[in-house]
Nucleic acid binder design. Structure first.
Length: 481
RNA sequence: GGCGCUAUCGUCUAGGGGUUAGGACGUCAGAUUCUCAAUCUGAAAACCCGGGUUCGAUUCCCGGUAGCGCUACCA
């Protein structure tokens, strides 16, 4: 079990999306679990759609997720010669043949056959007399290379997650291995690479389940040993359609930008189609590696639920040590364009982050709901105003509270609380009214940490100033029509 | 259309011939009263349908239905 070799083989035609990330993760988990090798291979044989900068982005996403590879990245575009050699070898051995039909001719035949059955390549060139074949080759006629699929029999295999799969060979057509421009197709390049890279377990999306028999035929023609196949159920959007851009954020980078932690995304993705024997939901990377098992992977497609991801993220966020969290918060503030003018010392920053940490769900929350903790430039959330700034006596009360706090001998959470409660008594209102109103004044939010801790953190001057600002704002608002 | 695969709460799932069908997210209610996206407690919520096998089927078999995938000189 120690010499397993697996690969993740994205094509750089888009960013790394969560489905691809999960495929990569399962390959990585399997490799680490078995002490094997995890190989990264870039499938960039489609020159038109592949973009080098996307390869870079995919690599970055994998690194961010912590899915380190042991070999590669190999680029298929560097290996075109091997694919051509393999195609030539297959032709020589009679397993493939040159096809001189043009794509246009094929398309036309396909369109004409529209009626009942699906159109399969009709074998025009498969049955070409040898002499004519030689002739056309000598003329240098452009041609593709097609695989000669056996006309009878069945191809079957045992998939690690789906079990026995079988298909009649007559359902398969003579698929193209090499395009007329000399570029390999997917089937040729994967099999060629998987054979040459001595891949032992092919772990990939279930969208390839139906392609597998074709590839098995190729392995056989090549006389190569079959790897174990393990297909993974697909990840769907809320409408049960295959997850795509239409569903909003689907790329790993988009979740990073939303303030999701890589370990949370990894944990969430791991559970989309797999459950450890004990059923735990929050799993350390080590626990995942230790328990991962392909045969426990689910067979049915899974809907991606961003709500559960958010919950999982909050779990990881809260468990994070301040040493790790503070730099992440700093980076978030920076990318949000907030230079923390309010906070002068690192000690203060740690205190602030620690206070906020228990109720933040993502890193983004620090720069959004938590904005007022880092800068004076913040706004009052509309629903906070609606909820806690209804009472008409508030402008006066907040202003009085500011006075009282300003005159305190020494400013602390306890003193501030005492002062506020006294004022509430004197004014004959509930302390809660004042506390909630003051919270909005100080943080702009209806949800925030305990008020007096917030006051203590902000300090007397800033607390007083914000209370006054709110009082004026409310006064003006009341005066307005 | 053909072929393949799949089917347990809204979602992710556990389970498995006899169970009060378990957990998690979300939802709802209560508690906390200084808010809540925090915390605690509780609740509602599922075996796709029809046949068969069986003393008994959600579980096994067959069929249907639905969903997804493949059906390219994309990967």
């Amino acid at each position: 079990m120690g010499d397993t070799r697996v690969r993740f083989a994205p094509s750089p035609t888009g960013y790394l999306h969560v489905g691809g990330a999960r495929t990569a993760l399962y390959n990585w988990l399997f490799a680490r679990h078995t002490g094997g090798v995890f190989i990264l291979r870039i499938e960039d044989t489609d020159a038109d759609r592949s973009k080098p900068e996307l390869t870079t982005a995919i690599l970055e996403s994998l690194e961010w997720l912590g899915l380190n590879w042991d070999e590669g990245p190999f680029h298929q575009s560097d290996r075109l010669d091997q694919y051509r050699a393999m195609a030539a070898e297959l032709v020589r051995a009679g397993h493939a043949y040159p096809c001189f039909c043009t794509p246009e001719e094929i398309q036309e035949k396909r369109a004409r056959a529209s009626g009942g059955r699906p159109w399969k390549y009709d074998g025009t060139c498969r049955n070409l007399p040898e002499a004519e074949r030689q002739n056309r080759m000598a003329e240098g006629s452009p041609h593709a290379v097609r695989f000669r699929v056996p006309e009878a029999g069945v191809t079957d295999f045992k998939d690690e997650v789906f079990g026995q799969i079988r298909i009649e060979n007559q359902e398969l057509e003579d698929f193209v291995l090499l395009r007329s421009d000399g570029q390999p197709t997917y089937h040729l390049s994967v099999v060629c690479d998987d054979v040459e890279m001595r891949i032992t377990h092919v772990i990939r999306g279930a969208d390839h389940l139906s392609n597998t028999p074709k590839q098995i035929l190729l392995y056989r023609a090549l006389g190569a040993a079959l790897p174990v196949f393990a297909h993974l159920p697909l990840i769907l959007g809320p409408d049960k359609q295959r997850l795509s851009k239409r569903h909003g954020a689907t790329s790993v980078g988009a979740y990073r930008d939303q303030g999701i932690l890589p370990e949370a995304l990894v944990n969430f993705l791991a559970l989309l189609g797999w459950t450890p024997p004990g059923g735990e939901e929050i799993l350390s990377r080590e626990a995942m590696v230790r328990q991962f098992d392909l045969s426990a992977v689910s067979k049915s497609n899974a809907v991606f639920d961003p709500e559960k991801l958010a919950w999982m993220n909050s779990q990881y966020l809260r468990a994070l040590s301040l040493d790790r969290l503070v730099p992440l918060v700093e980076a978030e503030l920076k990318s949000a364009g907030i230079e923390s003018r309010i906070i002068s010392t690192t000690e203060k920053l740690r205190e602030t982050v620690a206070l906020l940490q228990p109720r933040m769900r993502t890193l983004k929350d620090f720069s959004q709901g938590g904005r007022a903790f880092f800068t004076d430039d913040f706004e009052y959330a509309e629903e906070a105003e609606r909820k806690f700034w209804k009472d008409p006596s508030l402008p006066g009360l907040l202003s009085k509270l500011a006075e009282k706090l300003d005159k305190l001998d020494c400013f602390s959470a306890e003193k501030a609380e005492a002062a506020l409660r006294t004022l509430a008594d004197e004014a004959g209102v509930k302390a809660g009214l004042l506390i909630n109103a003051a919270r909005v004044a100080l943080t702009g939010q209806a949800v925030a940490p305990g008020l007096f801790e917030v006051m203590n953190l902000l300090g007397r001057e800033r607390t007083v100033e914000r209370l006054r600002r709110a009082s004026h704002y409310l006064g003006r608002r009341a005066a307005a029509p």
